[in-house]
Nucleic acid binder design. Structure first.
Lengths: 341, 341
DNA sequence: ATCACTAATGTAATCGATTACAGACATATT
DNA sequence: AATATGTCTGTAATCGATTACATTAGTGAT
């Protein structure tokens, strides 16, 4: 049984003290060239790897970032995670992933990850944290090692990265208006979600700015997911007076909506124009190709990670209330067209 | 500045030794009821949380599982991760995520995660590990704390969880044959991938079993991703003699293929029947709804985690060469139909 | 009263790296 | 020559929990 080699063993081989080994590895410039080389050689010979637990204990750091998602299973986050990873990995940080619901289900608290030293920082994608959880975060000594991404907390100042939801939603609706639509419906995201509100309010604003009355019956509750798109399609088809265009709070809603329309021979975009939000990978390859507002998910993840690391390095350039708003782009494809008459 | 409370502090409050505190928390049955309650009370009063780094150092465990993905950005893994999470979280394990490419890019080795105590076990989704990386894994003392999932290594025995790729592919092709197709093409996954091979070989087998000649020109290189679907569609449309049905190695390929066909007025399923593999969330809502082989991704993740934990607990019921094969189901929707003539 | 045994708790070593502090030596300055 | 300065290295305390071993008290049998 090959027992693990520790810093002592390396010290013996290199003929120096453990302090020197440690310094040669973590702060090479303070040891002489000769020793440095001897140490590196000894490390190679022995196959030494620092023990993270020991280092973490001594330095009170974990070199680990917690990424907190509202729903791990949602493919929307895949590319965001990738963005985060590309920033963290080269800087020597590991990425721990957890889900809001699972943490409380396991009887844990979010703040435990700080308290017990599992994470040095966190990127939170859930703007719907419980009051208590949010308060713990605000009051935590590590409060400046937290950034929000995509979503955010309404009553707490944390730096955050998000897409230009309001401008994007306005642009999406304007796109429909410019095509000549006046009867524009909206399918909302989940109740109480900050993105839902931002996009919905902007939908109303865009209509009002163009003197188009807002009609309650064309505002539908939804959930960002596929089912809500299908369900709303069914409701709309039963209506006497139908909208001619629909702004969906997510691409998933839009796809399922179109799918259900297609099954029932409602032509998109001719009878019904549909625009989504997100630009998921499949949007371009949907039938018809989906017109949507693109969110730069990779960039969002990257930015969030960058900001977090800056803050952790105590870079005062980023303050609590800083919000980085990422551009969104209207991508016009085939699911929108002027109304028929 | 509220300094962190340690086991010493709790011991003082409860009026017992640190050993007793530790025991009361991790092995309650060995302390008396009275002390146990006193300790719990003291823990509550002080707000004590064990320091993981210290515990990890002492116990030589991290209570963390590494999940190694070939590509974090691929939404295919989202639900799998969720499955893993639902098993790990209640058992007190954290989930660390890394990408094969990033590890080597950062100058690290996979095995470092064991050597430096970052992970107690790993679930590997990449059957294309470098020779060296794979060898390190095989030779590691922790080799029985590794399971493969989805993909696997051809020349090493690790327990693994996977879908019934061969049976599934045969069934998919048979479905096309039963519909009356004789001209059946195949779009492969990436070169050198174990899934690609399994599905391709089964495609050949299914044709041969039904006395349908295999035609080289109808076998296309692909990459599981959207682009390859689009590219192959273009190639097929230029062919003089076209297939009437296509078995795609993934749903992504299938969707992009159909999309490109639709843009060029090739009707699916009437002119071209298309079947995918995976049953991604959107398959059901694609236009036309995609016929495909369903992989139980949530279950796959769950099983992989279960098996890993069993092995780590030294449950000898699972041996190195054990392969759990998860059922796949043919889901017939709208993208397949009998050939027109 | 003595012994055997169990149950509950305490003492202190231990996990393996980092780093404050001190010491040794060489070189530069007056 | 004495002092100052700088460079490099070593000694040993430290991070905070776990646990082998020792100790004590309590119970019951003889």
């Amino acid at each position: 049984m090959k027992k693990s080699v520790k810093i002592q063993d390396v010290a013996k081989v290199a003929g120096v003290s453990t302090a020197t080994i440690s310094r040669a590895l973590s702060n090479p410039s303070v040891v002489s060239k000769a020793t440095r080389e001897a140490v590196l050689e000894a490390v190679k010979v022995t196959g030494y790897r620092v023990n993270r637990a020991a280092r973490n204990l001594r330095t009170r750091k974990s070199n680990t970032i917690l990424v907190l998602l509202p729903d791990i299973g949602n493919p929307f986050f895949s590319q965001i995670l990738q963005g985060i990873q590309t920033v963290l990995s080269p800087r020597g940080f590991s990425m721990l992933i957890a889900e809001t619901g699972q943490i409380s289900a396991a009887g844990e608290h979010l703040i435990d990850y700080f308290d017990d030293g599992r994470a040095d920082g966190m990127i939170v994608f859930d703007g719907g944290l419980d009051r208590d959880v949010a308060r713990d975060l605000v009051e935590a000594p590590q409060r400046n090692q937290v950034v929000f991404a995509c979503e955010w907390l309404n009553n707490a100042d944390f730096p955050s990265v998000r897409s230009a939801n309001r401008r994007g939603a306005v642009e999406a609706v304007k796109h429909l208006i410019e095509l000549g639509h006046k009867k524009i419906a909206h399918i909302k995201g989940p109740e109480g979600n900050v993105l839902t509100d931002a996009r919905f309010e902007s939908y109303v604003k865009a209509l009002e700015e163009n003197d188009i009355p807002v009609r309650e019956e064309w505002i539908f509750a939804g959930d960002f997911d596929l089912n809500s798109g299908r369900d709303v399609a069914r409701k709309i088809m039963k209506m006497n007076e139908k909208p001619t265009a629909i702004f969906c709070a997510s691409d998933q809603i839009a796809c399922a909506l179109i799918s259900e329309f297609s099954k029932n021979n409602v032509k998109v975009p001719d009878e019904m124009a549909v625009i989504g939000f997100d630009d998921i990978e499949l949007a371009e390859h949907f039938v018809p190709a989906l017109t949507t507002m693109r969110q730069d998910r990779l960039g969002l993840g990257r930015q969030a990670a960058e900001i977090l690391l800056s803050r952790m390095m105590n870079d005062k350039a980023i303050s609590d209330s800083d919000v980085i708003v990422m551009d969104v782009d209207l991508v016009v494809r085939e699911s929108t067209a002027p109304p028929k008459n």
